[in-house]
Design a protein around this nucleic acid. Structure first.
Length: 228
DNA sequence: CCAGACGTTGTT
DNA sequence: GTCTGG
DNA sequence: CCAGACGTTGTT
DNA sequence: GTCTGG
């Protein structure tokens, strides 16, 4: 699954990577981006835009925005059918720019956070969906991240992983709102192991109020757990 | 017909 | 909004 | 994802 | 245990 990530590239770098217009808004470098926060996504409307949307998809019919906290991920196996996602899947797909993401690996001495980054690139593109919802005269813009089974590397860490689109061609199919659903579904597969690398990081990342470059630095945990 | 759900992950 | 359960 | 709250009445 | 907030 994917519930935390880092995005420290500049807006200019992100705009360049995704051929997107640079927004007026500034964004901060993030090392601990978390659900419910406003984060940059790439959407296509005539041209590509970078927008700041809330992580946790709030369906258009929702009456309470807190439903978004349950919608931070969408299983790709059912994304086209679920009432909460199917509308966005058919017409409102987006890319989520990410420099690396965190997964928590269970060990005999507790959960340890792992940071997963691209091996030969600067930025990952997660496959996402976005939505708008009107609640109390306010429009909520939100997004979710598609998940799939893990590749061989992630299998050692966790039982799910975010969908990462590694080629420009696939990113374009995903972003184009006229792409047939069948074509889009084909993209929702674990990415090849060759694209990623990973290392353990500090448990400081557990708390969302920590957000600094040190969070993505490698740390070493004891090889063997303590005896009891 | 109306009422109620609509989600994902993993359980050390 | 749309589907399922009662 | 993890951390932290989980409640009401009525105001030091 | 389960939900909300970040």
């Amino acid at each position: 699954m994917c519930g935390r990530y880092a995005l420290h590239s500049s807006l200019e770098e992100i705009a360049e990577e995704f051929s997107a217009k640079i927004p007026q808004q500034k964004i901060e470098k993030r090392y601990n981006a978390a659900p419910a926060q406003k984060l940059p996504v790439i959407i296509r409307q005539q041209q590509n835009y970078i927008k700041l949307f809330s992580w946790g998809l709030v369906p258009s019919w929702a009456k309470d925005p807190s439903i978004g906290s349950k919608m931070i991920n969408a299983r790709s196996e059912t994304i086209a059918e679920k009432p909460s996602f199917r509308k966005a899947f058919s017409r409102s797909r987006c890319l989520v720019p990410v420099n690396g993401f965190y997964e928590w690996k269970k060990t005999s001495s507790g959960k340890r956070p792992v940071y997963i980054t691209p091996k030969n690139a600067a930025i990952f593109a997660f496959a996402g969906l976005w939505e708008t919802c009107q609640i109390n005269e306010k429009t909520i813009f939100s997004f979710t991240v598609a998940t799939t089974e893990p590749n061989n590397t992630l299998k050692e860490i966790h039982n799910r992983m975010p969908v990462i689109l590694t080629t420009k061609q696939n990113q374009n199919i995903w972003l184009n709102e006229d792409s047939p659903a069948q074509e889009c579904l084909k993209l929702l597969r674990p990415c090849d192991d060759a694209y990623i690398t990973h290392h353990y990081v500090s448990r400081k990342v557990n708390a969302t109020y920590n957000d600094a470059p040190e969070l993505i630095k490698p740390v070493t945990y004891p090889e063997q757990s303590e005896f009891f």
